[in-house]
Write a protein that binds this DNA or RNA. Structure first.
Lengths: 223, 223
DNA sequence: TATTTTTATGAATATTGCGTGAAAAAAGGA
DNA sequence: TCCTTTTTTCACGCAATATTCATAAAAATA
């Protein structure tokens, strides 16, 4: 689970990072709204902790922009309690709210609560790459990309094991099943076809020479 | 769907109204228990959002009186978490519970969940496609389309699981029942007939090769 | 550089899964 | 009961997909 912390104060970010990492969350940081928008467009973020008062671009504006094409859960931070009413009026669907100074413990509790609440959502979205697990639907740049069953299963297995290098044997066992006694090279062909279908995201499937393949969505996107 | 919001704070009512109306719910307001009782006796209310702490007549008492002759689903609001235990003691069959300050998003999620749980009448209408769940009546371009019982059940199950790919096994279990031990391909035949009956909407039943089928109406899919 | 090892690709072939129609079986109605 | 409607089975043909394999390309090694 990846949490993006957006706050202009480095101290705050550091404290939150420490607590979250202690609980095995991956933490990304942004010091302003622009940076936050950049990061969410490139990386998979499961939850955003967003400060309202920031220089350049405030929390509202930032959230509004991100929400245009992403539905990332968000916990808002603010220095003043009175902001809450304003926040409620703001029609952006925030998930929770905390006033500074807050206890890290409480933040953690809320992070967990929000993620628990959203666990049933099964959509993998990074940039304009959008995979709907339940719908068996992959969209890239808003257009449906047709995958064959094997390509689909393969892709899902990769995504579920992001950043982990997988051997051909492992892929055969997990995706094809233990009762498959075919050629190792079958994988290569499917990788080829999957890459073709991923278009500009073809490099997200990385060859690990002598080992197998791995999936990595934060690679630089070639267009 | 009509939701009655009962709270003495106008600000809270306004905020809830805004969120609910945004999701196409009809919203009624009451500022105290008496008014709530009046409204429920006169209008059709599908769900009540009821604050516990109110002047004159509190939430408990109000609910107790309304429940004497109506079984409207209710979500309770309270300022303090501790109230929850007290609430449990009252055997009034509340459907859900939220403490202030709550996230609007969570409220919306719970409203939807409660209504989903309690839905009785349901009409699914997109373009000139109109299915009345209860009346077992399908109209396309204003003309009634005759479906066999199995076709109805199948279609309803599809609509209730729109955008989700369903395997043949799942369809057999859910529509035919777990005690059906027939051929998988029975599904195919029913799909064929259903598609024929759907006429120009036949493509709303999408084949997910190697997996099963899913229902997808033409309306824009938000990603 | 030449050599070896590993991966990518294209094409040929094998296999699987779906749509269909027809017919048998079961359920309903008069 | 008989007749009609609905449900289920099934097999054929076609199209989509999976697999294999030969060869090209790329990367590592010396």
């Amino acid at each position: 689970m990846t949490v993006l912390v957006v706050d202009d104060e480095e101290l705050i970010r550091d404290v939150i990072r420490e607590y979250l990492e202690n609980e095995k969350y991956e933490v990304l940081e942004a010091s302003d709204g622009e940076e936050a928008i950049q990061i969410t467009s490139k990386k998979k973020v499961d939850l955003m902790i967003l400060d309202i008062m920031m220089p350049k671009k405030d929390g509202y504006t930032t959230l509004k922009e991100i929400r245009k094409d992403k539905n990332i859960p968000v916990i808002m931070l603010s220095a003043r309690k009175e902001e809450y009413d304003k926040l409620l009026g703001f029609d952006l669907g925030i998930d929770d709210y905390l006033t500074k100074p807050f206890s890290p413990r409480e933040l953690l509790a809320r992070v967990k609560a929000v993620l628990r609440r959203n666990r049933e959502i099964e959509i993998y979205q990074v940039g304009d790459f959008c995979l709907d697990f339940k719908g068996h639907l992959l969209k890239i740049e808003g257009k449906e990309v047709k995958l064959t069953p094997k390509e689909y299963e393969l892709l899902i297995y990769f995504i579920q094991n992001e950043h982990i290098a997988l051997s051909r044997e492992q892929l055969l066992n997990q995706v094809w099943g233990y009762d498959f006694y075919g050629d190792d090279r079958t994988i290569d062909t499917h990788i080829k076809m999957l890459r073709n279908n991923l278009g500009k995201y073809r490099d997200w499937i990385v060859t690990v020479r002598g080992m197998g393949y791995k999936f990595e969505s934060d690679e630089k996107v070639s267009s």
